[in-house]
Simulated assay, not measured.
Amino acid sequence: MEEQKQDRVSRSSAEAEFRALAQGMCERLWMKIILDDLRVKVDNPVQLYCDNKSTMSIAYNPVQHDRTKHIEIDRHFIKDNLDRGFVIAIHVPTELQISNIFTKGLPQGRFQDLVSKLGMIDIHLPS
C-alpha cells in the first residue's frame, strides 16, 4: 500500500485526528465491501478507535460549526455512518495507546511497560 501525503494543513490536533478518523472509516468500509463481494458475511458495525476526546465530540455532535468549518465533508461523512450504525467510534484512553511509545515522551515506568507489551528487548544490556 502506497503512503499518501495529506493534501491539507490541519489547524489543530483534533482536526488532524478527525481527518484520520474519516480516512480510517473509508478504508474499513472499503474492506467490508470487498468481504461482501467475496461472500464473507460481516454483520457487525465497523469499530474505529480514537484517543482524542475532541475528535469524538465532533464526530457525535453535529452542532460545532465554528470548530468544524474546515472539515465539513469529513464531518458529514462520519456523522452519516455513525447515525446509520455502519460504524462505531470507540474512545481509547491515552494510557492504553501502545503507539505512544513512538510519539510521546513518557515516564520511565510507562515506557518500560510499553516496551514489554511490544516484546522489545534492550540489545545493549549485558546477557
Rank of each mutant, 00 (worst) to 15 (best):
N61M: 11
Q108K: 14
L48T: 07
K69Q: 15
L29H: 10
F111C: 01
C50N: 11
N52I: 08
Y60L: 01
I98T: 10
H70A: 07
D36T: 12
E72Y: 13
D43E: 14
N52A: 06
S54F: 02
G109Y: 06
R67K: 14
C50R: 00
C50E: 04
N52H: 01
I101E: 00
D51Y: 05
N81K: 15
I90H: 03
W30P: 01
G109L: 06
H76D: 02
H65G: 12
I33H: 11
R75K: 15
D43H: 08
G109D: 05
E95D: 06
T55Y: 03
G109R: 07
W30T: 12
H76I: 14
P62K: 03
E95I: 06
I90N: 02
V63N: 14
D37W: 11
R28M: 12
L38M: 15
C50Q: 04
H76C: 10
Q64R: 09
W30G: 02
F102T: 13
V63I: 14
L48R: 06
Q97L: 05
I58P: 00
Y49V: 10
L29V: 01
I34C: 14
I73P: 03
F86A: 00
D66W: 12
S99K: 09
F86M: 00
Q47L: 13
K32Q: 10
I73Q: 08
Q108A: 09
R28N: 10
G105L: 09
L38T: 08
Q108G: 07
V87I: 07
Q64G: 06
T103C: 04
S99D: 07
